[in-house]
């Protein structure tokens, strides 16, 4: 038995299929659906209902996780439009972006060496600003048939920044530890 997975994540929560999202509405819908399907509701039910609840709750968690994150949501919307972001296979990037990446990575390395937590925090906020800029760009690309496919590159850039963020967090954690 399978759940009807033909519904996309937006439809599952009765939300419009679009990049801008009403986060409080998403959160509320998530809780409302989870309240109905969570395995805790079926601890005393038949085996069929327990299995179904586990599948549903898993799917609802996945949908919520995807829609909550602006990067995952963008990637998912592109996929719904049949556009693969090729994050694993396509590593081609504009030169200026690559140069900026190298500079950032050097700065992270330097801050790590000199145990400069303030510099790491500053890099985090710079990275956040750049992400914000790219999310705005992604929103406009996703809303426009003519340039939607360009969203691929924006998603790949955002994935780079996400990895950079993880590196900075690790470095801060190590300094605190």
């Amino acid at each position: 038995m399978q759940i009807d997975f033909s519904k996309n994540h937006f439809e599952l929560f009765h939300l419009p299929v679009a990049y801008p999202i009403d986060l409080p509405a998403l959160e509320q819908a998530y809780r409302e659906v989870q309240r109905e399907v969570h395995p805790d509701r079926f601890a005393n039910s038949s085996g069929a209902e327990q299995r179904l609840a586990a599948q549903w709750a898993t799917q609802v968690n996945e949908a919520y996780r995807t829609l909550k994150s602006p990067l995952a949501r963008g990637r998912y919307l592109l996929k719904l439009h049949g556009i693969d972001t090729e994050e694993e296979s396509n590593t081609a990037m504009p030169v200026d972006f690559l140069i900026q990446q190298m500079e950032w990575r050097e700065a992270v390395e330097g801050a790590k060496q000199s145990k400069d937590e303030v510099a790491l925090e500053r890099l985090t906020s710079q990275k956040r600003d750049e992400e914000k800029r790219l999310f705005v760009l992604l929103a406009s690309q996703l809303g426009d048939d003519a340039v939607r496919a360009d969203g691929r590159e924006t998603v790949r850039k955002l994935r780079f920044l996400e990895k950079l963020g993880e590196e900075i967090d690790d470095a801060i954690e190590r300094l605190e530890g």
Partner: peptide, 17 residues
Amino acid sequence: TENFAARRMDRSVANAL
């Protein structure tokens, strides 16, 4: 009871939303 269980679940989700 699988189909019955699935219909019950679909309906409770629909009601919730």
